[in-house]
Design a protein around this nucleic acid. Structure first.
Lengths: 244, 244
DNA sequence: CGGTGCTTTGAGCATACTCAACATCAGTGG
DNA sequence: CCACTGATGTTGAGTATGCTCAAAGCACCG
């Protein structure tokens, strides 16, 4: 783990960053990581604060350290599609011709690492390991985007919600006493905008899943998954909620 | 332009490849391109032939030379989502953990360049310019995927068709006598599977656009765009077909 | 001709949306 | 302490967009 604690470039904040597990530096050898690390600066954003907007010129590449943020696109009349919820370890700052292709907003309070884009690009030209790393990360994002395209284009509302809960429980679920418990930092509006549904539909499907015993709902933001197998079958259309 | 004609590695086929305009090599300096070019081999596929399937172990990276191919994902019950139509100059072969994340099929007869994945990966580690190039290409694919997520999740059927025709006419339209003429190599089924619609809906919207004078239809595969401004307004929901 | 494959059109229906009311909760201030 | 407010979520009734099922049109081809 790289430690820049006390470095005059970055007085204190860096102490909290584990470059071994950071999105961009993970798996990089020490020499490569030590070229990247000094570029970093830390930024904090309060929940609901914008980090950048679609079409803005992109000066930085970011990576989530703590908290969750939302990437989204909008139509002129305000309809919104969330393209991703980003948890710690993800990087962001995709551009085409130097401009952001989506907006980014803090969902919870977040801490991000920020790297000047021009310097990262220069380093990519010098450090093949960094280039490889970014290529892998971007490829993973693309694979997720394509999975989401299948969801948005071809799945029913129930399948969408089941898929969403399944993915979230795989990535962020806490397993205690044999069941998986989930904290969802996003509102129903956000879930709807992520899955291509309205809030009412999201709410109704949650209720149906609860009544079918597949999940249990505490506070609106807490979901307990009782039957993850059933959820997996529902996600792919191998099962329907109405058969009981 | 690199010429390997007569090279003992690649007897004849390479004569037809312009490495300056190839997806992977475009913009690369001569030295870099000349490291990449010898890896290539040419493959031909007849229309409807599979190139690879989702979850197959990925041995190659491909790039389209002539023809059009489709990338798609499927649900267990056969529902299909086309994630992209790839025209010459695009590369394909996205993987996660060494496996393809979607299936690829020839839409028309196609010629592709094929590079052994392991060798390309090795070269990426040695040639920063190549890494940068692949990063740009993958980033562009990701940007397109996110635009498609907005379309699939939030646009109406009319907006989807209008957006599709607009994109196709920008990328593949021929302008003669002030109007744009389009050849669509894909069937209505393919268009439906790309836009998250059924063939019937696709057909109905085409008819409506024709009756509104926005487009003209000759053979099913030929579309003439009469009013590209209207199409652009329809694509973003700034206009409706019913207001006349 | 009578096939087959693709597209278009029609009629009826279902899924998910719209609009509306109500519930719940946290924060605020009288 | 409790009424008031605003934000978020749930539930209900009715509707519309896009789907299903069915038939007909049309080209290409043996």
């Amino acid at each position: 783990m790289l430690q820049f604690v006390g470095s005059n470039h970055h007085p204190t904040a860096l102490a909290q960053i584990d470059f071994d597990t950071s999105a961009i530096c993970q798996g990089l050898d020490f020499d490569t990581a030590s070229r990247v690390a000094p570029l970093v600066s830390i930024r904090n954003y309060a929940a609901k604060q914008a980090i950048f907007y679609e079409l803005d010129p992109a000066k930085y590449v970011y990576e989530v350290v703590t908290g969750v943020l939302t990437l989204y696109k909008q139509l002129p009349d305000g309809r919104r599609q969330i393209t991703g919820f980003l948890y710690p370890g993800h990087y962001l700052g995709l551009t085409v011709h130097g401009h952001h292709v989506h907006s980014a907003e803090a969902l919870t309070n977040v801490t991000v690492c920020r790297y000047p884009r021009c310097k990262i690009e220069k380093l990519v030209g010098e450090l093949p390991a960094l280039a490889m790393r970014l290529l892998t990360l971007t490829g993973n994002e693309l694979a997720m985007a394509q999975e989401q395209m299948l969801l948005l284009g071809r799945k029913t509302a129930t399948e969408k919600i089941a898929s969403f809960l399944l993915t979230m429980s795989e990535q962020n679920g806490k397993r205690d006493d044999g069941k998986t418990s989930l904290y969802l930092p996003m509102s129903r509006v956000d879930i709807g905008d992520y899955l291509g549904l309205t809030i009412e539909t999201v709410s109704r499907i949650f209720t149906r899943l609860r009544k079918a015993g597949v999940i249990a709902l505490g506070q609106p933001n807490v979901v307990a998954v009782n039957d993850i197998g059933r959820l997996a079958r529902l996600a792919d259309g191998d099962d329907t909620l109405f058969c009981n």
